[in-house]
Design a protein around this nucleic acid. Structure first.
Length: 496
RNA sequence: GGGCCCGUAGCUCAGUCGGUAGAGCAGGCGGCUCUUAACCGCAAGGUCAGGGGUUCGAGUCCCCUCGGGCCCGCCA
């Protein structure tokens, strides 16, 4: 059984722990002061002559052992911290028999160690630390993945992300990049006087989008609660309250499958800007995308995909009109004059299977997805959607039957959605009702939120709102194809 | 939910026509004082995802289950 397979490997490493304790050495010490990044050592080696060991600068480093090459009297140990790899050189002559022999007897790939020594360049030209002191900082009793091929098994990489991270520079770098880009989004918005806020995740009725919510239960209230599917409605209440420029970066939950571009929990950015309209917001969005793409390119010029995104995200971005583009790609004419039944038939012909009681807006979305989205490879703003598709947006000031909205696409993937916000409480109430009627009982609609309508009655300033999936943004900027590769712990089925 | 593919040692992978399980790395023992996928020698390591079936004989063929991947469907 698995236990005995493992115990053979783990037993030997466990024995080494006992061996150390017997020798009075703690295999899991409390701290390791004074350490510097391995990259600093590598930098300090610059300009040194290979093989020259005279007056090397002293460094203390700590990290994980990736490989050990032992040659009898000399051993080369590849050490790795977040800043990168560094070769340690251990010599019998420098360390003495006891420490040298014990180190080699006890250290394995995967162990966390600290070392102090001089920065030199080896005779073969490798930046190295010529070690005078070495200490085990934490013994790994589980063996790490193979040093050359790493961890390839897709399932293990998802289920045991810590193993993927410790074994793969690329994985570590990808998640560091995600964090840095998220911080860059915050900095961009703070520079423009947007206030970061937090709104509830648990709410009685999830609304602000059309999606199936997760349902849970409050013991205290003895009432059902749902997990939010969007950030929109609470943030707009804050505009009513006078906060003027707000944003939230937060987890949203939709009760759906995991696939290459969808995850049941994902991170949304939404921002709301009082006294601005969707044209102002489009300018802001264009700046945000191009700024992030350039930052990514400056920080990680070697990551494949980053250069392509930086090249593509160069303003001004293309714009297309939702209706004209859909008519052009599909050959349908007078799209806005078609009734629900006609739209349903066209959507069915295009291969979409929607519930028969779905609203007209859903069919229009389907047609657009089918005929237009795959063609939107270059960064493109899609403008001015039909009213039926967008219940929370304001009617277009000059185009009948439309709202003031844009969506942003890159490589066929939606990367942003914005509109001039509907702030007329009477019209908002009507649109909620129309949504509920258009969608059948089985169908998700934008749930009626009576308190939101009440909030609008107090007066919400004219405003523009913008939403974007952080996960997808990171995918686009880093050239990653699967959302699972930018989520640290994606949902996986529990093992039987 | 439907279709296709995958699951063999801790890791990366071979395994022919159905004939009784292999390599490299890691680990153990021995050797080696400038290697970097170090090298050389010796020994060890397996519920072939799980269950059932066909067969004299199944890692291999068939069925079911579990898990994962890709495509489609659903969904921002």
């Amino acid at each position: 059984m698995a236990e005995s397979d493992e115990s053979h490997l783990i037993r030997e490493r466990r024995a080494k722990v006992e061996q150390l304790r017997a020798a009075g050495v703690e295999p899991y010490p409390w701290s390791f002061p004074g350490r510097r990044a391995t990259a600093e050592v590598v930098a300090a080696c610059g300009g040194r002559t290979p093989g020259d060991e005279s007056s090397p600068p002293e460094f203390t480093v700590a990290g994980r052992i990736r490989a050990i090459r032992s040659h009898g009297g000399t051993a080369f140990v590849d050490l790795d911290d977040l800043s990168g790899p560094l070769q340690l050189i251990l010599r019998r002559n420098d360390l003495g028999d006891t420490l040298y022999d014990r180190s080699l007897a006890v250290l394995d790939p995967g162990d966390l160690v600290g070392a102090r020594g001089g920065a030199i360049v080896s005779k073969r030209g490798e930046p190295s630390l010529l070690v005078g002191q070495v200490a085990l900082l934490a013994k790994a009793i589980a063996p790490p993945p193979e040093k050359f091929h790493g961890l390839k098994d897709a399932e293990t990489r998802l289920r045991q992300r810590y193993v993927d991270l410790l074994a793969s520079d690329a994985t570590r770098q990808r998640f560091v990049a995600r964090s840095v880009l998220t911080r860059e989004v915050r900095r961009f918005l703070e520079d423009r006087k947007f206030l970061e806020v937090e709104t509830p995740t648990l709410i009685p009725t999830a609304s602000g989008a059309s999606a199936q919510p997760f349902v849970t239960h409050s013991n205290y209230l003895d009432a059902p609660l749902q997990l939010r599917i969007a950030l929109e409605l609470p943030l707009k209440r804050l505009l009513v309250g006078g906060l003027e420029r707000v944003y939230e970066i937060g987890r949203c939950f939709r009760n759906e499958d995991l696939d290459a571009t969808h995850a049941p929990e994902f991170t949304m950015l939404e921002l709301y800007w009082a006294y601005a309209d969707y044209t102002d917001m489009r300018e802001l969005a264009e700046q945000l995308y191009s700024h992030l793409a350039q930052r990514a390119h400056a920080l990680w010029p070697d990551l494949p995909g980053v250069a392509a995104a930086a090249e593509a995200f160069r303003p001004p971005f293309a714009t297309v009109d939702f209706v004209r583009e859909l008519e052009r790609r599909s050959g349908i004419s007078n799209l806005l004059d078609l009734d629900r039944a006609a739209l349903a038939r066209l959507a069915r012909e295009a291969g979409a299977t929607l519930p028969p009681d779905a609203g007209a807006g859903r069919f229009l979305d389907k047609l657009f997805e089918h005929f237009v989205e795959p063609t939107l490879v270059r960064p493109t703003f899609v403008l001015d959607h039909p009213v039926a598709t967008t219940p929370l947006a304001k009617r277009h000031r000059s185009l009948p039957g439309r709202v003031e909205r844009f969506e942003f696409f890159y490589r066929g993937l939606e990367l942003g959605n914005a509109y001039t916000e509907l702030n007329d409480p009477v019209e908002q109430e009507q649109r909620f009702v129309e949504q509920a009627r258009g969608a059948g009982a089985s169908e998700e609609a934008y749930a009626y939120d009576a308190d939101f309508v009440e909030a609008l009655r107090y007066g919400m300033p004219p405003a523009a709102g913008f939403g974007l999936g952080i996960d997808r943004l990171v995918m686009a900027l880093l050239g990653v194809d699967s959302i699972k590769d930018v989520i640290l712990f994606p949902q996986v089925r529990e093992r039987a």
